[in-house]
Computed example of a mutant assay.
Amino acid sequence: MDWRQVVATNLRRIRRERGFSQETLAYEADINRTYISKLEKGATWAGLEVLVKLSTVLQVEPSEFLQRPARRAAGKS
């Protein structure tokens, strides 16, 4: 998994856990909703300023976006 996908996976997961729609997150972070969508698809790189804005709204440390997901054990769902 490349770093764009790591950020995409974590951003999407954290946003959903916090109950934000992409539109609400974009508004609160003052970021274009289309850009949020591209980030969540792993289609573009996120700059540090954007990660800080998102982490502030989502109330997480910016480093959480860079945590590689735990690998699932074989045969488990």
Rank of each mutant, 00 (worst) to 15 (best):
T24Y: 07
W3F: 05
N10T: 03
W45K: 10
A73Q: 15
Q59D: 08
G47L: 04
R4G: 07
G47H: 04
P62A: 03
R15M: 10
D30N: 14
F65S: 05
L11V: 04
A8E: 01
Q22D: 01
S77G: 03
Y27A: 15
N32T: 06
T9V: 14
A46Q: 00
V50P: 01
L51Y: 07
A43F: 06
R33S: 11
A29H: 00
W45I: 04
L11N: 08
G42C: 01
V52I: 12
R71N: 11
S21W: 00
G19D: 09
K38I: 00
Q59L: 10
V6S: 04
L25D: 05
I14A: 08
A70W: 04
V50D: 06
V57E: 11
A43V: 05
S77P: 00
E40M: 12
A8K: 05
W45C: 10
N10R: 11
I36K: 00
V50W: 01
I31S: 08
G47T: 07
V57F: 02
E61W: 10
G75F: 11
E40R: 00
S63E: 00
Q67F: 07
R12G: 10
S21I: 01
E61A: 14
P69L: 02
Q59T: 07
E23Q: 08
R71W: 07
E17V: 12
G19W: 06
W3G: 10
K41A: 05
L25W: 01
W3H: 10
W3Y: 06
L48P: 09
D30S: 14
G47C: 05
R15D: 13
I31R: 01
G19P: 08
E49L: 13
L58I: 10
S37H: 02
R72D: 03
G47P: 04
A46Y: 00
G19T: 07
S55M: 08
Q59H: 04
R4Q: 09
G75K: 10
N32L: 09
Q67H: 07
L51W: 00
T24I: 06
Q67M: 13
R12K: 15
Q67W: 04
V6P: 07
V6M: 02
G75R: 11
W3M: 15
Y35P: 02
Y27L: 12
A74S: 15
T9Q: 15
Q22K: 01
V6I: 15
E28D: 07
S77T: 09
A43Q: 13
V57Y: 11
A46C: 05
A46M: 00
F65P: 12
A70L: 15
V52G: 01
L54W: 04
G19Y: 04
I14N: 02
S77Y: 15
F20Y: 13
A74P: 01
P69A: 03
L39N: 02
A70G: 05
S63I: 14
W3K: 13
R68F: 01
A43Y: 09
I14T: 14
E17M: 13
M1T: 13
F65V: 02
I36N: 01
A70E: 06
